[in-house]
Each structure stands twice: as structure tokens, then as C-alpha cells.
Design a protein around this nucleic acid. Sequence first.
DNA 1: CAGTATCCCTCACGATACTG
DNA 2: CAGTATCGTGAGGGATACTG
Lengths: 135, 135
Amino acid sequence: MESPSYPTYTEPWDSAHQWDTRADCEVRQILDRIADKWSLLVISLLDGRSLRFGQLMRLIDGVSQRMLTITLRQLERDGLLTRHVYPVSPPHVEYTLTEMGRSLRQTIQPLVAWTETHQDAIAHARNAYDRSHEG
Amino acid sequence: MESPSYPTYTEPWDSAHQWDTRADCEVRQILDRIADKWSLLVISLLDGRSLRFGQLMRLIDGVSQRMLTITLRQLERDGLLTRHVYPVSPPHVEYTLTEMGRSLRQTIQPLVAWTETHQDAIAHARNAYDRSHEG
DNA sequence: CAGTATCCCTCACGATACTG
DNA sequence: CAGTATCGTGAGGGATACTG
């Protein structure tokens, strides 16, 4: 599968760094999606329960109708949650995590815990940096 | 510290959903930072070794000088990597993860693994969604 | 209630040129 | 080599008004 004419690359490299660094890297696309302004919050709030559109609106401070709609549609498109419409008037719509959504929520948990554990250290590092680089 | 006149909130809620959903939430600020377009890639590539500016430029396809500089400065400011300048000409600068940077790298690893495991499922879900919503 | 539609603006980012 | 400075664009996203 490898072309013999392709020159051997001499950058330092080993099996521990097998990330795909191309701009269209799938992993980074998915990370960009789940780490956007609202997706993580939605996934977190739906853990273990279903919620309606208005409930999510009230639980997420600062989100607009427009952005909540877009976020929910993207997560639905990615198969991370399902949208169930009850055909009543006024409309009743419930959002629920899929199996994949729940597994993502589990995976995110350690990262959330890391930020909580280290937020003071990061704040301290920022202060130190700003003091030593003030103009 | 709590005002007695603040009304008791009656939304469904339990101890499993204790996220801070305010717009200025520290956790989300940090997640926004580490999940931006280039930071994860830099942290990943620096795992277990130091690299120079030019090496990172060549390893990260598509990054501009400007964005690599900004990304590295932010990560340095957050205490996730250190910048070591060798006072020679031409300049020689090396970037190395700090202890905190290495611990973040460890924490990110499961999330990267998750995206790799589920990227086919997500692509499939997107296709199914697009087919059923085409118009 | 759960959305769409439209306007508008910021700012993140790329491109390019220059420098100690 | 490792940056800084400047300009231009466009996608992200807020505000507002309207609707089945």
C-alpha cells in the first residue's frame, strides 16, 4: 500500500502520535460539534430524563430560541438524541438522549471533572501570566 | 448567603444535574478553549516530547502562523505548556507540556477514542437524517 | 408551545506583508 | 526561525417579529 518512491519523513514521530492532523479530520469535526456553545449543556441536562423545548430554554441561561433549535437539530441529525412530537395542541415535543448520546455523556464526564478540578489552577496560571506580561 | 425572598424553583432537578448553566460558566469557558480549532491538536502532538514552532506548523495541516501563535500563547497563559527560548540566532523556541497539560492530554484520550469508535455511526445517522428530511 | 423568518453585527480566522 | 501587524471576509449568533 505504500509507495516506495515516497520519501521517508524525518520529523520526530512515533506510534503515540497517530492523530490525523488533516484539516478535515473527522475526530476534530465531531469535537467541534460537541464542544460548541450549547451542545454539551444540552447533552448534560438530558442525562437520565427527557425534557421539553421550553424546559431546556429555561434551564440554559442565555440561549436564544434560534440557537436552541439549531443545536437540537444538529444533535438529532448526529443521532445523539431523538425528538418525539406528541400530536396535541398546543404542541408537546420531548427530547431524549439516544444510547449513543448517553455513551457520549459518560465519556465527557471525566473532562468536565478535570475542568472543575483544575479551574483554580488555570485561573492562577492566567493571573501569573498576565502579571509577568503586563505592558 | 442566600436571599430568603428568592423563589424556590420548581423545575425537575436532582443531584445528577448539578451543572452550572450560567452563560459565564467556568467549565464551559475552559471547554471552549481546549476544544477550539487547534488546541487539542497541539496538546496531542506535544505528548511526550518538545516541539519547535516550525515543527508544529508542518505537523498541523492548514494552520496559519497567526493562529498557531495565538493558540500557543493561550495554552501557555493557561499553564498547559511552557515556552522555552534559546537565545541564539536564528531563534530557537521549544514548546513542552506542563504537568497539568499532560494530565489534560490523558483526560482527552477517552473522548478521542469515543469519536473514533462512533464516527461511522454518526456519519450513518447524518445520512439517514438527511434522507428522511430532504425536500 | 415550539418553533420560522429576517435583519444585523461582531469577531474569529485566513491571507499577506514585514521584522529582530 | 519565529514571530508581529494589518486588512478583509463570512459564519456564528443575538434581537425581534411572526405562526401552526
